[in-house]
Amino acid sequence: MVGGKLTSRRLIVLLARLALGGVFIYAGWMKAREPAAFIRDIWNFRVIPEPLAYWVAAFLPYLEIVTGVALIVGPRRRGAHAWAAVMLLGFSGLILSAWLRGLDIACGCFGADASALSTSYPLMLARNLLLLGLLAISILVPLRHRPAGSAPDKAPLTPPPP
């Protein structure tokens, strides 16, 4: 974590990272516990071939957990931001495609036990939109506030003298 004074800007960014990372860790853990149910949820989307669903169900929960940990703890956060964006946009696309195809399925986003959260398409998309908002805060809001006219952290790169 970045040391120094806890400003309201920093607090917002840290809370956004904590919430987003926590959601990813929770979602990954719930799926990793019950991979069979997650495989069935993937089958229900009818997007990828069945044998491939096995590998996705075996791997994706751990990518979510690793991404969540990196979002909260810090190292490789840029990569975690990128994975979080890829996953959230991918999941949103899948949910939207299932909605457009009229499929009546659970999303399996938080494992088999969270069916109440996983049955309404507008609710699922709104939830993903909220998570994308948290991601945007984490990426775009700088932790350090630099007053106008102050010196930058690093000297600007200039071409080497001839």
């Binding site: 991979p35 096995y54 075996a58 929960p61 957990i65 690793v66 990569g79 990128a82």
Partner: peptide, 26 residues
């Protein structure tokens, strides 16, 4: 960013590979 994504990918592959052999449902 790509390097960090790759690093996290490897970090996820390791426990997934263990789960494939250890988890009874997999």
């Amino acid at each position: 960013t790509l390097r960090e994504m790759l690093f996290l990918l490897v970090g996820a592959i390791v426990p997934a590979a263990v789960a494939i052999f250890v988890h009874p449902q997999l």
